[in-house]
């Protein structure tokens, strides 16, 4: 084990004498390899602190969401409660993927959003390509380490804001963390990107349906209609939801 780490720690714990402190700082300017070790020590501390903060915030969010849910109560007059029980019994996956309407009544948009997220966004499929940052982020996501995954995806974007996959995943992670503003920001930016199959508008609508604040459902409906009209990604699901709206 390198003795330098212990020496570096003594410096930051203020265990060195004034003369030893001066020699430590001179060594940084004279020896690039030593300076790099000091840089690594501080970077590691920063990263570990970031991760610790992210984990605590996730705990606080769970506490707050449990006591102050953002959802709105079911719309008056709807039969969503009965149909929700029917849906659970009737295999939700095929219904959502195929967009087949088994429901005879309207569904609240927030329930549609919850169902979609549970069935389609629990995991991001890893690709068989060489391990890279995106794959690492996906692995963390699939282990439900959302805070860690978000750090990776946003770091990719910080280096290159055009990375559409990283932006898509950053939006999805933010949605899973109920950080709707951040999710909306990522998905809005994604919508503006030229892609062969752009999921941005659909995810934008999904996030609004999940957030369910005044005005959100109206805007979500408008976006879903645009997904259908413009033949964008997931237009079949958008069409099925519009029928149930």
């Amino acid at each position: 084990m390198s003795d330098n780490l212990s020496y570096i720690e003594d410096y930051f714990n203020k265990s060195l004498s004034p003369e030893e402190t001066r020699l430590f700082e001179e060594r940084i300017t004279a020896e690039p390899a030593f300076a790099e070790e000091v840089s690594f020590y501080i970077s590691t501390r920063n990263l570990a602190k970031q991760q610790s903060v992210a984990e605590k915030k996730a705990r606080f969010r769970a506490l707050y969401d449990a006591s102050e849910p953002a959802k709105v109560v079911e719309m008056p007059g709807s039969k969503t409660r009965t149909w929700r029980l029917v849906a659970i019994a009737a295999s939700i996956i095929s219904i959502v993927v195929l967009g087949v309407v088994f429901f005879k009544s309207d569904r609240h948009p927030n329930e549609l959003a919850d169902e979609y997220i549970k069935e389609n966004l629990e995991e991001i499929s890893p690709s068989m390509s060489v391990q890279d940052s995106l794959e690492a982020g996906k692995q963390l996501y699939n282990k439900k380490d959302y805070a860690g995954a978000l750090i990776i995806f946003e770091s990719i974007l910080n280096r290159d804001h055009r990375q559409s996959r990283a932006r898509e995943y950053a939006g999805i992670v933010s949605l899973q963390m109920n950080n709707y503003d951040k999710a909306l920001s990522h998905f809005s930016e994604l919508e503006e990107t030229r892609l062969e199959s752009n999921p941005g508008k659909f995810y934008h609508a999904l996030t609004l349906m999940k957030r369910d604040q005044p005005g959100d459902n109206e805007l979500a409906k408008k976006l879903l209609q645009e997904v259908v009209d413009q033949h964008l990604w997931n237009e079949d699901v958008a069409a099925a939801w519009l029928k149930k709206w």
């Binding site: 840089s39 690594f40 970077s43 590691t44 990263l47 570990a48 991760q51 940052s133 690492a136 963390l140 380490d145 860690g148 750090i151 990776i152 770091s155 990719i156």
Partner: peptide
């Protein structure tokens, strides 16, 4: 110049 993504992966 530290690659924080790589450092995060290795930390995990």
């Amino acid at each position: 110049n530290t690659d924080m993504e790589l450092l995060m992966k290795r930390l995990q």
